[in-house]
Design a protein around this nucleic acid. Sequence first.
DNA 1: GCTTCAGTGCCAGGTTTTGGCACCATTGGT
DNA 2: ACCAATGGTGCCAAAACCTGGCACTGAAGC
Lengths: 239, 239
Amino acid sequence: MNVRLRHDAIVRSLRRTGTSTVADLAADVGASRRTVLRDISALRDAGFVIHSEPGRGGGLQLDPQSVQTTTKLSVAEVFALLISVASMRAAGNLPFAGLADAGLAKIEKALPRDKVRDLRRLLDCLYVGQLSPLVDISDLSMMDPALLPAFETAFLQRQCIGFQYRDARGGLTDRIVEPHAMLILPPLWYLVAWDPARDDLRHFRMDRIGRPELVQGAAFQRRHVPFEDHVRPVRDLSR
Amino acid sequence: MNVRLRHDAIVRSLRRTGTSTVADLAADVGASRRTVLRDISALRDAGFVIHSEPGRGGGLQLDPQSVQTTTKLSVAEVFALLISVASMRAAGNLPFAGLADAGLAKIEKALPRDKVRDLRRLLDCLYVGQLSPLVDISDLSMMDPALLPAFETAFLQRQCIGFQYRDARGGLTDRIVEPHAMLILPPLWYLVAWDPARDDLRHFRMDRIGRPELVQGAAFQRRHVPFEDHVRPVRDLSR
DNA sequence: GCTTCAGTGCCAGGTTTTGGCACCATTGGT
DNA sequence: ACCAATGGTGCCAAAACCTGGCACTGAAGC
């Protein structure tokens, strides 16, 4: 097992159990006691605060304060993984097509250890919160995943996208918009997009969007306009 | 020298010199030609586009675009991850926690088939796009990262958070709100939060928020209200 | 005094990384 | 046509690193 993954596993285990002994951890992550001790030492070097108590009833305990750091680290790891997926996708063709067994094996081996620091820096800056306890992410009834690839392409290539939209009153309209962002407010997803026809920034509920398709050759009209101009209308949101 | 550091060094060197040969790189980072070639291969797997030209006057060249592309994709996927990790962190034991853990562990092992499907589904479902070409992620002038930890805690622990807010007209008000989500619409960040005092959902520009602090003991008033109720006002956004 | 625990030092075995080598393909110059 | 410079690959042995076992110490509780 990879060192980094094992470190993560240890941190997760500690967070889950609260307190556990080195021997338990070793059994948990499938490594020897000695190795776990080395890992603990490394984690401490990396900034994790891990309390230890010798003697009967003792054990290791991860300082809850440092859990933030913990999460960042593991996020960084997963993120690294996604980057590799992304690169595979870029190299290949279809969205996530590369996620075959071979691809995953490749992820495991080939790369992204060198990316991790960059990622961590990114993650320090990029953050999102959500009202998690109220949300079951696995309930995606409000969002049809099949829609996403088209939007992904539109976002990344600054292409306009057309779709049918059913508004709050049930009326159907055809839209061609420049997609800017997703607002994820579980369980609802909103597309934040500029509607050139209405010269306004609109929010579309993703679950009301149907039959999206890229508008070939229709790049953003505002391509060369400074972004500030683009975003200005949004100020309305902030009241 | 560490692999990761060497990869970094190679990328830096390539960026600095524009074009250089494998032999030069080897001398630069203090490794053998063979090792540098291996590193180049790894970097390519990781998504760096490195052009190469054999023959006299040839050499390696790092495609400046490719670095951006990598970043763009990463940003898109960070969101997805943060969401899953957020839920993982909060729930600790619910669906996604298992999936994330399993995903990582399996990858490490060379993966059972059935989890691959789950993982793919996870990746398919969690997604976000952004108008990347217009955005320089490193420009965070509009957002003070120092603010984030407090908000993270507030999100995750459903604690109210208080801050000073300078509204569009420059007036200062003190707010105590229940934070729901971040809307990231580069370069602006918005906090989407319920303001109990005004009984309304508001959008706050993060760059107008000052001196945030958790309101100890002030959990969300609406803690046990079904999420739908909570989110209903947002429908306004979708027009 | 015994047991349970964290922690350290050491070493043999195993795994991974590295460097050297031979070799091929391509390119531009002579 | 030939040569030198350059990227790229396969192979292998040596070097470096990681791991697990072992013996040990010290602290805490019973």
